[in-house]
């Protein structure tokens, strides 16, 4: 065989192998992380987790009830506040933004906020909410989560609305439907699956957020649903328990980590399946 051809072939085989190794490397991290989470977290899975509060230092009995409830409350408020604002803003960019010179600027800033470090959001909410309110509170934590939700939902809403064919809007307008109803009754309905996907992805993202809660919601060892005070939540509980010297706390941290990861991955998978269903149609 021609030596030049042989060397080209050899190089090609090497690079193909390297690409294969890279893919195996990436997939194996997911496998490894999930495996260790199940291995260490399943042992602690019991009803106790859902019926008892986080234990005091050194105790060997307790659960995650308060942290679970706190996390759910804060995530729901965060998404409840952030998603409508994000959806309205995304609607403006997609439906009214064509003739506004500010729209590209808003889009650009939104894209930057989308990947801005979440700890900066925490600092912002600390300065804007915690200091004026005079203390850490679940409300501040929820608002920090809402600030993270907004840019994600803006982006998905705009993308999804711009996929709706204009002929649908034109047909509705030709029947005399006013602009706002064209958007609400026609465009929203056509893009519904995509809009829900965006909100699910945003929920998945904030469900595991820790950094912005560290100095907004703080945490709480006891059961509390008082939004004006610190409330326990899973991510900060994991953060505190991992760095503790108590074996039982570490076990609980693994169980909490498994719970969060399963919830987040489930949300991600549901969102993606819904998204691909829409494309398949």
């Amino acid at each position: 065989m021609n030596p030049i051809y042989a060397s080209r072939r050899r190089r090609d085989v090497i690079v193909r192998a390297l690409c294969f190794v890279a893919a195996a490397f990436g997939v194996s991290w997911l496998g490894l992380i999930l495996f260790t989470l199940f291995y260490n977290g399943l042992a602690g899975m019991s009803w106790q987790l859902f019926t008892q509060n986080t234990p005091p230092p050194g105790a060997s009995e307790g659960g995650l009830l308060n942290a679970l409830v706190g996390s759910i409350i804060m995530t729901v408020i965060g998404v409840g506040v952030g998603a409508p604002i994000g959806m309205f803003a995304g609607t403006y960019l997609a439906e009214y933004g064509k003739h506004d010179r500010l729209a590209p600027v808003i889009r650009f800033i939104n894209d930057i906020l989308l990947s801005a470090p979440s700890i900066i959001i925490g600092l912002f909410v600390y300065g804007a909410v915690v200091v004026p309110m005079g203390g850490f509170s679940a409300l501040a934590g929820s608002l920090a989560l809402a600030v993270i939700v907004i840019p994600i939902v803006v982006r998905t809403t705009e993308d999804m609305l711009s996929l709706v064919p204009n002929s649908l809007r034109e047909a509705a307008s030709a029947l005399g439907l006013p602009r706002s109803l064209v958007i609400k009754r026609i465009a929203y309905r056509a893009a519904r699956t995509g809009l829900i996907t965006g909100v699910l992805l945003a929920t998945a993202r904030v469900a595991g957020e820790t950094a912005p809660l560290l100095f907004t919601a703080l945490s709480n060892q006891f059961f509390s649903m008082d939004l004006t005070n610190p409330v326990a939540n899973l991510p900060v509980t994991i953060n505190n328990f991992v760095q503790s010297p108590y074996v039982y706390w570490k076990e609980l941290a693994w169980s909490a980590a498994l719970l969060i990861t399963l919830a987040v991955l489930a949300l991600n998978i549901i969102a993606r399946l819904m998204g691909s269903e829409r494309i398949a149609k």
Binding site: A23, G26, V27, W29, L30, I33, T36, L37, A204, A207, G208, E209, T210, A211, P235, I238, N239, V242, A253, A257, I260, T261, V264, L265, N268, I269, R272
Partner: peptide, 16 residues
Amino acid sequence: AIELLAGIPSIIYGMW
């Protein structure tokens, strides 16, 4: 699978 890697919360990476 690669996309799900991006979905895992960062505290899980830290703990792991």
